[in-house]
Amino acid sequence: MYWRYLLRRLLTLILNFWVVATLIFFMFRFLPGDPTAMFLDPSMTVDVRAAILERFGLDRPLHEQYVLYMQNLLRGDFGWSFYYSRPVGEIIGDFLPNTVVLAAASLIIAYVVGVIGGVVLAWKRNSRFGEWGTLIPLFFRSAPVFWTGMVAIMFFSYRWNLFPHRGMRTPGYVADGFLEKFVNPDFLHHLALPTLIAALYYMGLPMLLTRTSMLEVFGEEFVDLARARGLSEARVMFVHVLRNALLPIVTATAVAIGLAVGGNIVIEYVFSWPGIGREIVLATQNRDYPLAQGMFMVIAAAVMVANTLADMVYVYLDPRVTF
């Protein structure tokens, strides 16, 4: 039964991919402007312009371009970036890991701290701490990230000189290979500030969600039963209540993971982080269709895969969920 469900889910996933790929393709074609605008120059003649369009295959009818695009996509070929004059896969491969590292670090911190904080807030809801505590996640959720980021840079970098304000590594670093590039003190030093700011922003959702969701479970009989069994309050909170309040948080996590792959454009901009978010903006501005399409496909894929995984985790978390 479970396997049939899985198969069905997988088929939907593929169908969704096709729909998204099609939407993305036409979305960019219907944007005003074309890639020649970025080359536009008084020295450019009409012939040159036509030649550029021909080189990119943009002079062909739309349906032909679409079929070609789909064929290439099936073979895992995202096409050739107009702007970089390199395969789209290579460009995404260069920027995606940077975004993923930052997103993973901040999401892990945000969700671990957020969920624990949410439990504590729900637990101590009647105390002064429990009431005032909700202000903190609300504040960071509402404050614009560029502002918290700039304030953090002003104090932690310019004022106290504790953390670097830009980039992923000290300029002129020596590093080869993935591990050496991402696991070293210098990189972690650069990672700290953007991670903190992103985590503070992401944290609000799981914290408040956990709190609300736990408050709903409090009235259930099994909570009273657990207390009656003489379990410690902490055990009641973390093992019994949280366990049953977790479902909406899993959904929220899946969506967050999916979107985080698209990069946090603002964080990446404020901290000069060479991630995928800024590249998407650039690719769209340059009308670099293949690159923008490829990047949107990656984001769509992340959202869809994360949601599928969340659906599967549901089964484990809530045995009542059947197919």
Partner: peptide, 21 residues
């Protein structure tokens, strides 16, 4: 000569101030 990428001219200026560039 080491050419270092920044996201904005303001970030470049920050690096000029703290001696990064």
């Amino acid at each position: 000569v080491l050419i270092v990428a920044h996201a904005s001219t303001d970030a470049v200026f920050g690096s000029l101030m703290d001696g990064t560039v």
